[in-house]
Design a protein around this nucleic acid. Sequence first.
DNA 1: CCGTACAGATTGTTCAACAATCCTGCAATA
DNA 2: TATTGCAGGATTGTTGAACAATCTGTACGG
Lengths: 232, 232
Amino acid sequence: MVTATWLDSLSAERERIGRSSTAGRVADALRARVIEGQLLPGTRLSEEDIGEALGVSRNTLREAFRLLTHERLLVHVFNRGVFVRTLDRDDIRDLYRFRRFIECSAVRYAGSVGSGTSAPSLTHLREAVTAGERASASGDWAAVGTANMHFHQALAALAGSPRVDDTMRHLLAELRLVFHVMADPRTFHEPYLEGNREICSLLEQGRHDAAEAALAAYFDTAEAQLLAGMPD
Amino acid sequence: MVTATWLDSLSAERERIGRSSTAGRVADALRARVIEGQLLPGTRLSEEDIGEALGVSRNTLREAFRLLTHERLLVHVFNRGVFVRTLDRDDIRDLYRFRRFIECSAVRYAGSVGSGTSAPSLTHLREAVTAGERASASGDWAAVGTANMHFHQALAALAGSPRVDDTMRHLLAELRLVFHVMADPRTFHEPYLEGNREICSLLEQGRHDAAEAALAAYFDTAEAQLLAGMPD
DNA sequence: CCGTACAGATTGTTCAACAATCCTGCAATA
DNA sequence: TATTGCAGGATTGTTGAACAATCTGTACGG
């Protein structure tokens, strides 16, 4: 089947051809603003203002709001409008409990199956580690944070599950909501570079139990640091 | 705090007082039809027909469609409409992998924390077990299936995490999509009654490792049975 | 100080219309 | 025969306006 590679490479592009709704693009634009911290938690998103600014109708904008509400980036209060979500301490704890479940399971799963398919995944993991160290060396702390996100995304990808990938992407986007209300990004992201490298090395050595333990330790300290730094 | 029960019982009703959007109610109605099997996978949902049948405008209906699309009960194809989702073999495998992650993690978590707060959760678990056995005795196989769902919902609730509860609810709703294209509900649900009781007993004895192992075994057999019974 | 009533602003929902796209059937061509 | 091209009809995508329902804030009266 020589043609199979043809068709596969084509179907990979299928997403980008036409298939884009206005509401989807509006959601992308708003999501970027939220993730980047331009729209801080608690901000109210006026239908009229944003609709006029983006040049879309209220109905279309409301569809975009629904999208982001289900990603838990916005909250919708009946008859009052939509707001950028504000996470409280319980939300943080719940988020990290969920992260523990997902990421630790992914690491454990990677250890339970043969390493035949895991080679490319570990490549992504190592790339995220080196990208973080490079960003740290050049003092770009925002990039360190992004690399840290990619590291954990790659960690979840060890599960080889589209659903896990999706869940993890949403989780990390939510986490950005907290990072932006935190004081200094450097003190939060930099200490974990070493831990990331260690986890990556352990996985490359096939020591998945030790990697999972190191990951669990990371969650404990990161959650504690996050809770300690919260204004509430 | 005598008044606490007052307030709790009130806040439980808060959802139903006013705070209900038309789109939300429409989504509830459609979700019920999908979960109950009246709308089978692959069915196309016409905006005009359903809008007229329910007496809501197209815009409101589209909001409801978005809700259910994000719950993965419907799929939205650009310029073609929404369809009841059809799961293929890969979807089943992905779904069960995710279930393994979530539910096994919940059981393990319940074993790692003190049993102080887990008492009410185990009550729900046992209630689901007895409800299933009662339904089986009376030959109500649909009720057996529902009780089985409640069992796994209660299992996930051991995590004590609203987010896990939410995720589990969505997962189980998706699973119904597969059950309804399966042949006989009895042959699929009945064999697991005994396993459920065993898992429940093991948890009551504090033997969480054994319970997790039994749960993992359940996932293996259930997934295999589901894949074997698929028309593809 | 507290409760009420009014006015303004915003959201919830509907409706009608048009543009863009898809599906179907049929004819034309190699 | 199989494939391509082209109307025609049907459905979705998006818009704009309109009205009802609800919230917020403020001034008034007790």
